[in-house]
Design a protein around this nucleic acid. Structure first.
Lengths: 124, 124
DNA sequence: TCGCATAGGGCTAAATTTTGCCCATATTGT
DNA sequence: ACAATATGGGCAAAATTTAGCCCTATGCGA
């Protein structure tokens, strides 16, 4: 694993939630798991832009942070199912708020984001 | 500026809000600006862990995304003040929710985050 | 027996973000 | 004159995250 060189900041609630949600695909993973897509292969199909590797890594992190639970069925080929823990479920309304805000302001957001990118071709 | 090589995903509201909030210090910046810390030097003092450079960069991004407005007073030494735009203000309740969730579950979160880091000294 | 699907981890390279340093401007205080 | 304050951007290096490739294991069907 990667060994951090700059210490984390864990002062307030915003730091703490950031620590568990930062990660390109984490919110999406929680979202789809909540919708009932439980198996890693399903999730990969739902999020085709992500590499299989990162999904695994981020699923592991979500699990270690107690947001999702993993069931390994002792079969071959292997079968694995994730589900939200009670703790993870408490987060869903908050994620719902995030998505709702983004949806409500989708036009404006798309406009400003794209404008920023036009300044230099393919910018961030 | 940095030239992106992997295209952005801007499908749903979650993608869109992520695009404007991703950045180590952005949420904190919005938070403090909302609390009335308007000048860059004040914000830097409130967020001493951040480099002055990034705060500038991220303030610029927040401005270009229409979340904050910048007033430059034609003085010397220069004086600058940021404030939330009406659009930015609509985001504050959502950030409030994030912080509230983090605060409510602070003990649990600190525990699981630290446990993850003990697995290997100084892990992420 | 080859190919596919399922799941996962090691490892390196690439992508992206953040840091830190330097330079520039103008004013006030020492 | 020199230091300090305030703001900001160029630039390269460091830190961190993500992508991609390879290897493992089992069972099913062509």
């Amino acid at each position: 694993m990667y060994e951090r060189k700059i210490p984390l900041t864990l002062n307030c609630g915003l730091d703490l939630i950031a620590e568990v949600l930062y990660g390109k695909w984490k919110i999406r993973l929680l979202w789809f798991i909540n919708e009932g897509y439980k198996r890693p292969s399903e999730l990969l199909r739902k999020i085709p832009d992500a590499s299989r590797r990162v999904l695994n890594v981020q699923l592991n992190e979500l699990e270690e942070h107690g947001l999702i639970a993993k069931i390994i069925y002792p079969q071959a080929p292997p079968k694995v199912e994730y589900s939200l823990t009670a703790f993870g479920q408490t987060l869903m309304p908050v994620i719902g708020e995030l998505g709702r805000w983004g949806d409500e302001h989708a036009d404006h957001l798309r406009a400003v984001i794209l404008k920023r990118m036009e300044q230099t071709p393919d910018d961030k």
